[in-house]
Design a binder for these strands. Structure first.
Lengths: 212, 212
DNA sequence: ACCTGAACACCGTTCAAGT
DNA sequence: ACCTGAACACCGTTCAAGT
């Protein structure tokens, strides 16, 4: 377990994000990152033990970009501030986003964010035993929504195109058929994100009042 | 745009899942899948235009494994049936799971599931304009939870270990400190999944009654 | 109709060596 | 302390050919 240098770690993470932006996350190879810095691939192994560790560090850098909420916010505003902060990171670094769901956030920034959400839920009056579960529910939603938006899981399409994909005639898809008008319409994901988050905070409030 | 064969497609998907189970999703290479079938890598290109298309088809096969709900269920039971069905697939094929969040579900099975959830929400009395949003919220939660569980994003740890990771003394993590007792405890993810889903269905019901 | 073989332009990582 | 060079065991994919 050799000791690692850290002098140029930030530079390397920037390079990795730059490569991700240019050629996609799959294009982030040790070779490509090294080339971006005019280094040999092997030079990177002085700073990270493996490509996996490098990617963990990239994720940590992304979470560290979320600005801490001002001290005087109410609990809902704290949750919204952090959620919007993560979404803004996603918008800045869309191609790096799959990292969020494919690896545990073990970075300092990740732990601090969890701590802030715990504080928010406690001041909301959530019973201690329920706090971790609700934090997981909220973070799952936030990461999942942002992730789905970005990689196109929320694909919209007309009834006909969906029916073709389902290899079924529209009559056998009554749910889709009933909503044929909505299906083609463009969606404002920013607004949907806010509304969902409001609903989830309402849910938290409802749990508090029914527990009291 | 050559025409593709489909005689041996199911065999190939089985082989891909077998390779994923043995060597992880990263181990699913065209070469490895081919070898599993005693074929040359190039033989696969008669059935799929690229590795990406093969992985899309694997995702389709996973969703097709979810059993259709019995016809006489209420809307909550339909949602729960499908959610638990997806979770069961995840348990059977843990290493294939990242596919769910990293690519759009454009398969027949995916579209049919969306249709069933739309029907369920409509019979619940959800206004048409809200149905697609709530379907996205539910599916985001379900996929996100299962995905987080499986890849360890829901990592638990003691206050001390988390503080070390945050590179902060415990006193500067008041949220975590207040919940020190809960933090080490093991969690029953199956139960948490059910409770979250119940809460989300309650949310749907609440939206229906406040819209009326 | 179905499959193979050779080749191209890539990977992550180890090891020994250089300044 | 920091970096390089050669090598190993891999990738996805194209193209031309074989039965």
């Amino acid at each position: 377990m050799r000791k690692l240098k850290d002098s140029r770690r930030p530079e390397i993470l920037d390079a990795a994000l730059a490569v991700a932006a240019e050629r996609g996350l799959d294009g982030v190879s040790m070779r490509a990152v090294a080339q971006h810095l005019d280094l040999t691939p092997m030079a990177l192994y002085g700073y990270f033990r493996s490509k996996d560790e490098l990617l963990d560090a990239v994720l940590g850098r992304l979470l560290a970009e979320i600005p801490p909420p001002p001290a005087d916010l109410g609990w809902r505003e704290v949750v919204e501030h952090l959620a919007n902060g993560l979404r803004a990171v996603a918008v800045r670094h869309p191609s790096a986003l799959p990292l969020l769901f494919t690896r545990p956030a073990v970075s300092p920034a990740g732990v601090r964010i969890v701590d802030m959400v715990y504080q928010a839920l406690l001041t909301a009056g959530v019973p201690k035993a329920e706090v971790p579960r609700l934090e997981r529910m909220l973070s799952t939603f936030v990461i999942g929504h942002v992730s789905s938006e970005t990689n196109g899981r929320f694909g919209t399409g007309s009834l006909d195109s969906l029916a073709r994909r389902a290899q079924l005639p529209p009559e056998q898809l009554p749910g889709l058929q009933a909503l044929a008008d909505q299906l083609g319409a463009p969606v404002d994901w920013t607004q949907e994100f806010r509304i969902d988050l409001r609903d989830l905070c309402d849910l938290v409030e409802h749990l508090v009042s029914s527990a009291a």
